[in-house]
Design a protein around this nucleic acid. Structure first.
Lengths: 207, 207
DNA sequence: AATAGTAATGGCACTCAGTGCCAAAAAGGA
DNA sequence: TCCTTTTTGGCACTGAGTGCCATTACTATT
């Protein structure tokens, strides 16, 4: 009897009907509509119609309307976790985080305007801002996990949690500044923002 | 002609039909149901029926189901803002915040179990956790406003924002620990948590 | 008392997000 | 061609939230 688990994780040998869309496509189409007509004014029917698929199908690609602007965020998080796992042990904690987060937020120049729209929506539309909490929570978990491993403490203890929150807050502040100024550079803003945290949470303090 | 604006802010001299409920009552009734049957399993119809009012009326007291567990949080925030405004100028920044927040979270002993239920819901039910962001945002604004005023910087600048986020994160972490341990004391947890922040964000650093 | 003015109530009908169910479509392999 | 697998999308239903409006309860005035 062959062991099925060997290939279990790989694309399960293309069977059955092909998917008619990708999450990325749908996210893009939805974003377009949200920016044009406004988030509240756009219904899921509108999005489905614009994408040429059924409403029911749209709900299979994204569990909620709020998830549409986020696209494939989960994949990015997975990548960031993997990146952090590969960081050499001698790189200082805050440096490692700074570098990982910045890498994670480095947007190709031609996609910058697109990303601005996305983030403007996520930070200003109340429903989306609220829903974002759940994503931020995952994001914080990645940070806290890394800090906890490095410091050899429990992930639920105060320091990893506080650092994760602080990094999140500072990142969002930097994002808000970026959105306020058309000519600003996100990476620069993030970098200088983390400088402040670096001086606050350095290795010599907190045990 | 008399100037109407003189009395405009005061309770406008009891006119028309009396309110049949208070926000506090309704919040309490709803919380009871949410704990018994679960948040998702309880409909607004259920809450309205339990309170003996119409569904439509319930929606006038609370704009959404998510707002029910929060009760009169806005009033508490207003009180905290007023409290901070009265803090003597010579009291160190972090001390002032620590004291204000703790005062704000000091719960009468007999209400503790009730508050535990409320916070358990708010932190564990996904919909509520997401919606809480909006309340946290108001909370952070109070903190950031105070820090900005003290340091003479813009409220949108990095330091007030970062401090507000850090305080929020540490507070929530303390709350989560409190909920995990039945015998723990919330005020103690908050107090010791802020110790860490105090050593991080002291006056000598950051310009 | 009767009346006028005011504010809260709650019923009705509607929109829209989200879900369970299931038959049909679209692929591949035998 | 037939069988299996997977995706699709239509239909119907629940529940949150909203606009509209007649009714109710209360106060002040005459």
């Amino acid at each position: 009897m062959k062991d099925a688990s060997v290939t279990a994780k790989l694309p399960p040998r293309q069977l059955g009907r092909k998917r008619s869309s990708t999450r990325a496509e749908l996210s893009h189409i939805a974003l377009q509509l949200f920016v044009e007509r406004g988030f509240e004014q756009t219904t899921m029917d509108d999005v489905a119609a614009a994408a040429g698929i059924g409403r029911r199908t749209l709900f299979r690609y994204f569990p909620s309307k709020n998830d549409l602007p986020w696209g494939d965020f989960d994949d990015l998080l997975t990548a960031m976790r993997a990146h952090l796992a590969r960081v050499p042990a001698d790189q200082p904690l805050v440096d490692a985080l700074r570098e990982a987060i910045i890498e994670f937020n480095r947007i190709p120049t031609d996609e910058v305007p697109y990303h601005r729209q996305r983030m403007t929506l996520l930070l200003t539309v109340p429903t989306l801002a609220a829903h974002s909490t759940l994503r931020y929570s995952d994001w914080r978990a990645v940070i806290a996990e890394f800090v906890a491993a490095r410091r050899g403490v429990d992930i639920l203890s105060l320091q990893p949690q506080a650092m994760a929150w602080a990094f999140l807050g500072v990142s969002i502040s930097a994002y808000e500044r970026w959105l306020r100024d058309d000519r600003s550079d996100l990476v620069e803003l993030l970098d200088s923002a983390y400088d402040m945290l670096g001086s606050s949470f350095d290795e010599s303090r907190h045990r």
